[in-house]
Amino acid sequence: MTTSAKNRALTERAAALVGLLRRNAARTEEDRRVAEENIEALADAGLFGITVPERFGGHQASIRTLLEVSAELGRGCGSTAWTTTLSNVCGWLVGLYPERAQREVFETDTAARVCSVLTPAGTSRAADGGQVITGRWPFASGCLHARWALLGMPVTGASGEKPEQGLALVPMDELKIEDTWHMAGMRGTGSHTLVAEDVFVPAHRILSVTRALRGEYPTEFTDETLYRSAFVPVLASVLVGPQLGLARGGLELVTASLAKGRPISHTFYEQAREASSTQTQIAEAAQLIDSAALHLMRAADDIDGWAARGQYMPLLERARVRMDTATVARRSREALDILLNVHGAGSFAEANPLQRIWRDQETAARHAMTNPAITSELYGRALLGVEEQVSALI
């Protein structure tokens, strides 16, 4: 099978699961964790191995494929799409580690799921052959289904200095999960808090984030294109694939409702679909969704293209990807807002899945990495050649 055919097959497998995910969406939200039936179906379809190296039986697919799969799953359930996507980006992160660490995760379990909290937290101290970490890491999406966790941490030298930021790869059975994820949206992601108490992490399982931001990865397999992808652009772009899918799912629900022939209350329109106001709003929502998709796929193609050329993406292009991802979040929210206006107050009935889509979208779009004000400033500085930036995450 050619690479393009393999990538297309993965997206088709995701599309085939949309019906199942929709049926289980309410249960996923109520249980505050992805329905086990979803997890099993995703695993059977190989959708937890999109970014796992082929050396371990994974698909080692492109970032574009990961985002296309993510958007398909988002049509069915935002929480499931988010959990699957973040598990896959963590698989990509593991592919940046030395082979020894990769083997510990994937050699006996190709589909081993990994969760992460990249924000550096807790404390560390130098120990013979590694670091000992203690702390609490909130918002660990997918931790309820993971075997490993990636935890942001300060790396501490022998004299107590902290020369760099690291990312510790830790087995989940060495951590505790605190039930802290009580949110209005994305409730099924189970993004609880991970707790470590004097956990030893060997040096080969600590990735230097400081170096990764420059495209310096410790993997020995430098010929593998996927694991040459730019660090922050990958981490930012995966956050909005599910959001694009949510907007598409909302459009499908509203157009299906209109096709059934409902009227517009307090007007002479017996068929809302015949009103020019409905038609123009649906067109505008669809156009916003298309705009979001175009920005997301441009970002994906930029990431994949620079990796294929064996060059680390320049600052300006990395800043544009940050801007693109914020644009996807903003346009998806705007589209859904219009669709809610078309559908009316009934959108917020507890029995209407549109209100869950709206809550998931509004929650996911507030992720700090896609903050439109910050990304605009960041991109503007890059365009104007201002050296001092507002964030190291570019």
Rank of each mutant, 00 (worst) to 15 (best):
L96W: 07
L251Q: 04
Y379E: 04
T134W: 09
D290Q: 15
A307G: 06
S141R: 01
L378Y: 03
V94M: 03
T123H: 13
L244K: 10
H59P: 00
R262E: 12
G249V: 07
L383S: 06
R22L: 06
P163G: 11
L336R: 00
L20H: 08
R309M: 10
V69F: 02
R64D: 15
A345I: 13
L169M: 07
L144T: 08
S191A: 15
E161N: 13
T83R: 05
H266S: 13
S237C: 08
S237W: 09
A247N: 05
E197V: 13
Y379W: 14
L118D: 06
E224V: 07
E29V: 08
L118R: 09
Q281K: 15
V105G: 06
T327F: 09
E72S: 11
E317Q: 14
A326C: 09
T278I: 08
G58V: 02
T80S: 15
R273K: 13
Q355M: 08
W306M: 02
E40V: 15
P218Y: 00
P171N: 06
G157C: 04
R214D: 15
S276C: 01
S70V: 10
L226Y: 03
L118H: 14
K260Y: 03
P242E: 05
I303E: 04
M153K: 09
R75M: 10
Q287R: 12
N352F: 01
Q271W: 12
L66K: 02
I357M: 14
A149F: 02
L246H: 08
Q361A: 12
V170H: 02
E164P: 09
A111T: 15
L175W: 02
V254H: 04
T11M: 03
A293W: 13
M153G: 02
R320Q: 11
R273Y: 11
T2L: 14
L239E: 05
Q102L: 01
G91A: 15
Q243W: 05
Y97S: 04
A43K: 11
E40L: 15
D44G: 06
I264N: 12
I264D: 12
C143V: 10
T108G: 15
A5S: 15
E36W: 04
A247Q: 01
Q60W: 01
Q287F: 11
G346D: 11
L336S: 00
G250C: 10
E72W: 05
A256G: 01
R356C: 03
V234T: 09
A112F: 07
A121D: 07
L235F: 06
T83A: 14
I303W: 00
R309T: 01
A140C: 08
S237L: 15
G46H: 03
E334K: 11
A140T: 03
R187D: 05
V52L: 10
T189C: 04
L167T: 07
L151W: 03
G122I: 02
R262K: 13
P120F: 02
M313C: 08
S257G: 14
R228F: 00
V132N: 05
S257T: 13
L17S: 11
L67I: 07
V89E: 10
A293M: 11
T80D: 12
M1P: 02
P353D: 04
A365T: 08
V254G: 01
Q131M: 06
A382W: 02
F56S: 02
D304Y: 07
G385V: 05
E37C: 05
I50T: 12
V132C: 02
P263A: 00
I63K: 06
C90R: 06
L17W: 05
Q279H: 09
A35P: 11
L150D: 07
R330P: 05
A293D: 13
G78T: 03
